[in-house]
Design a protein around this nucleic acid. Structure first.
Lengths: 254, 254
DNA sequence: CAATCTTTGTGCACGCGTTCACAAAGACAT
DNA sequence: ATGTCTTTGTGAACGCGTGCACAAAGATTG
């Protein structure tokens, strides 16, 4: 198995903390909004409010990039936009391939957030031969058989997986073999990748389940009776069937 | 502003750490797969591998739920599925409303991950009158004017926002006013909500930007020349225009 | 029933991330 | 030029999350 060693030794090199990197896009977005309104400078306080974070955290985050602020004044908006963009690697073009053009894949292809900011949908790939040639978001879908060639020819290093869970690992392997080193995975699957390949996952049902947890807690804090039965201890029936306190609702995860 | 106070005082009450809660859905998914294969028990080692985490971490996570394992044997799959489902609140029905039926909203409505596991798409809402009545994923789209009534009548406490960024805050406010206390936000916006309302965000472009950062780093680690110029210091031109080392590419975030 | 072997549950230490609080830096006014 | 006022940049403390390593628990075997 070995999911490429699970621990991330954090961002070494010049050492920008991972948590900071994750917030840079947030700052960038807020700064861009200010830039469009021709606001010349912002204080850490204002920018932090716009980005929804703590001002101290923001200042510390920026301190990892260098001393780009002016004391008594704040940060130059345009300059900061440029610096963060450069740090994030957004000053160059990133061709992206989306594999699995179902509802979600098509939605992403049409999503404006991709086109802007350095990312370009370079290819749409699907395993269904019937889809080959069909244009989605103005881009013709190509067949998965040509995946390797498509990735190479377009110099794609970032792949987006929106296939059904069953196909995700196989697609992932092929992407990696073709040279992709960063993967954004929408399939509800744990992907195994070799070292050096980054995987980020976006999992809708996980997010919902986390919300449900808190929601249940909120409801339980008043009415109470959330944990009525101590529930049956691990009785551990001989083999399979077990019905401790009645019958369990056979929840259907995925 | 005040985004409902940014700090999360962690999960108090019986005190399941937030990080653990975030992993429970992962375990649940792995366990369900085992359950479908009629595997009676798993060791922490096996389950951890399937979920892509450390076995020690998994055991510690489970320890917050109680002592559900049997030493020398492992965990009873069915029983654990039930316990985690119950802990996450998945043994009850969660009616969900999706607001903003564009490409993404439609994709989510069709997404199988919603229907399963306790979540039910109870309503689709859009501001476009032309869409009203049109069935998406078998569910007729309703107009935003009736949002309040729709939420109330269906007892929706979890809302999903897939509107354009400009409309997100307004929709959010209306959802909250109607009684929604958990929001899954796909719009690239920082939402302000009152205390007691949970917001989780899924932001595609942020994920991509994080990948781009690491991708750039990887590329720079070999060829080097990633940071050629120390770049101009915060020269801070009188007002706006600034062209330190040429011209900045005017990156277009959102 | 005793010995052995497997696997859990957890005390402990370490490291990252967050927050506080303040000194230093610089703008601005006089 | 000097003083005041604003805001940055950061040292230090704290808390959470992670991983190690091992004792305790129980299954299993002889």
């Amino acid at each position: 198995m070995a999911t490429g060693r699970n621990h991330r030794p954090a961002t070494r090199s010049r050492g920008i903390p991972e948590a900071t990197v994750a917030r840079l896009p947030l700052y960038l977005r807020a700064l861009t909004a200010l830039s469009e309104r021709s606001v010349p400078t912002v204080s850490s306080e204002e920018l932090a409010a716009a980005a929804g974070v703590n001002s101290a955290k923001l200042r510390k985050d920026f301190s990892y990039l260098g001393s780009y602020g002016t004391r008594g004044v704040g940060y130059d908006v345009e300059y900061l936009v440029y610096q963060i963009s450069r740090e994030l690697g957004l000053t160059q073009d990133w061709p992206v391939a989306i594999v699995g053009i179902g509802n979600l894949g098509a939605a992403l292809a049409n999503y404006g957030g991709f086109a802007s900011r350095g990312f370009r949908v370079a290819a749409l790939i699907d395993a269904d031969p019937a889809m080959a040639g069909t244009p989605v978001a103005g881009i013709p879908v190509q067949h998965a058989d040509d995946l390797d060639r498509i990735i190479s020819e377009n110099g794609v290093s970032i792949g987006v997986i929106t296939t059904p869970p069953g196909a995700a690992q196989q697609v992932c392997d092929r992407l990696v073999a073709a040279g992709v080193t960063s993967i954004l995975n929408f399939a509800p699957t744990v992907l195994s990748v070799p070292d050096g390949v980054d995987v980020r996952k976006v999992d809708l049902s996980i997010e919902l389940q986390i919300l449900a947890f808190h929601e249940q807690r909120k409801a339980g804090e008043e009415g109470v009776d959330t944990a009525p039965d101590p529930a049956a201890p691990p009785v551990r029936a001989t083999t399979g069937r077990k019905g401790p306190d009645g019958d369990m609702p056979a929840v259907m995860p995925a």
